[in-house]
Write a protein that binds this DNA or RNA. Structure first.
Lengths: 122, 122
DNA sequence: CGGCATCCAATTCGATACTG
DNA sequence: CAGTATCGAATTGGATGCCG
């Protein structure tokens, strides 16, 4: 206990709620983070993503890619091959989201340790 | 374009997926962020929270508070009044989550600006 | 007052089949 | 190959009433 104050130094004002929700919702889809993860390693074809993201159906992959695209996180690059192929990549803007995800992951990793530790009393 | 590399300096490895998901899911409930926001201003009674979080039903408030409690984010403090009253506060551990939320909010605020800007072509 | 049980509405997700 | 359409299952959230 090195602190007695009840309040954190940085309260969360109501004006912050919407932006935080935006970020949470953008990442809330069941497969979004995994898709972004795969794309941090470079450009991928639809089919490669489907192989990377184990268990995803084409329906969900398509849907979540569209959501990421309208948010500017990824760029869709259709190629005039035969049959058509489409590759996706993280946009420069999308890359600004990666550090945020890392910070969330760091907290989550620590949280996992804490929760598992708190179960050892079983 | 000050960079030519396709890959971000910090890829997201698959080992990061679960911890990131943990953090997202912890914040994914419809009212969780707002509850945490309210509690960053100090201890609150159940009833006060219900007034603060406009539109929430007692059922949802109770449910989300429980989820935050089992995750160690908040502390439940029942008082032996008549009738019983219960107050909630952010735990010291829960306060470690606040900076993460702030970072998510900062990204989201910028994202909002970007998205709204991209609609001005309407 | 705090919170649980029940029931219903809405949203999300999965499986599968189909098209250009 | 890269999606879309359709259907059904599962999850999530809301309204309400009851109880200690």
């Amino acid at each position: 206990m090195n602190k007695r104050s009840d309040k954190p130094e940085t309260p969360l004002y109501r004006s912050h709620l919407i932006p935080v929700h935006d970020t949470v919702e953008l990442l809330s889809g069941k497969w979004k983070i995994e898709i972004i993860c795969s794309l941090t390693f470079g450009k991928k074809f639809f089919m490669e993503l489907k192989r990377d993201v184990i268990g995803i159906s084409p329906r969900m992959l398509s849907k979540e890619l569209q959501e990421l695209e309208v948010n500017g996180i990824i760029t869709r690059l259709p190629l005039a091959t035969k049959p058509i192929t489409v590759s996706y990549e993280l946009s420069e803007y999308g890359k600004t989201l990666v550090p945020v995800i890392h910070i969330m992951g760091a907290w989550g990793r620590n949280h996992r340790k804490k929760i598992i530790g708190s179960l050892k009393v079983n």
